[in-house]
Amino acid sequence: MFEDGAIINELLIERLNYFIYVVLLLIGLHAMIAKRNLIKKLIGMSIFQTAIILFYVSISVKNEATIPIYKAEHDPHGAASKAAAIELNSTNSGKPLYAPTELQSSETQQYANPLPHVLMLTAIVVGVATLGLALALCLRIQQGYGTVEEDELLVKLERSDARYSLSPLAKAISSRRRPARNSRNPRATGKSSSTPKRSPGYGKNLGSTKASKPSTAKTKTTQANKNPNSVNRKPGTTSAKIGTKKSLPPKKTSIKPAGKTSPQQKKGTE
């Protein structure tokens, strides 16, 4: 089995379908693990899925076999069947008009195996339904966090975790004040896109917000002064936006192309 060339012959010549199914499956698996964009992950998932369907369909292939639809001589409504039935009918009037006959085991080899086809047919349709569901979740993530890149998402999730693990007072305020959608959280978008790495980016963000705090916090309520970290929570409100515009001019400009021009880009492509 493992002699020179034998395994190559085994895999690449005689069973190329099986080999390619493994390759496609690995491509899909690698994409699901390593790609950072969620849409890319979904494309990888679909490739994985079709690879498995390819495997099932490859199983059902028989040499010298046709598609799993009855040929004319076996067709229950075909001319041959009808002629046989009429012949049968003339000799024995008690029988029904059509009398399709059961295939013999030698004739079974003439048709491809229909069972894997049936299993995979429904799998494809359910696959597109689940793909649509996953895309809907992607849209929702985009609305909530402004990105579908996994590394940026992780930064934002960590930040929102930090936001909620503050003092009880801050927690109560954040639960009351928290906007339903933080998609227009411009500071967060800009910072994470400038620092894609997760842990150093997080540290840097904390530092930069602390540094920018004195200029912004004075314009706001006194609770912000009690909790230095609670500045993080504020940018959703409009007063904070005005404050940050003054204090962080370079950040703001770096944000704008990412956040605000995208609708126009979309319009252009439309």
Binding site: I69, Y70, T101, E102, L103
Partner: peptide, 29 residues
């Protein structure tokens, strides 16, 4: 291989042999 286990299984053979008799549908799938 027409004699592979998947193709030799009684279930799929039954489907191929008896679909015409049971349901008169030419398309087995």
């Amino acid at each position: 291989d027409p004699h592979s286990p998947a193709s030799q299984s009684p279930v799929s053979s039954h489907f191929i042999n008896n679909t015409g008799v049971d349901t008169e549908v030419p398309n087995m799938v």
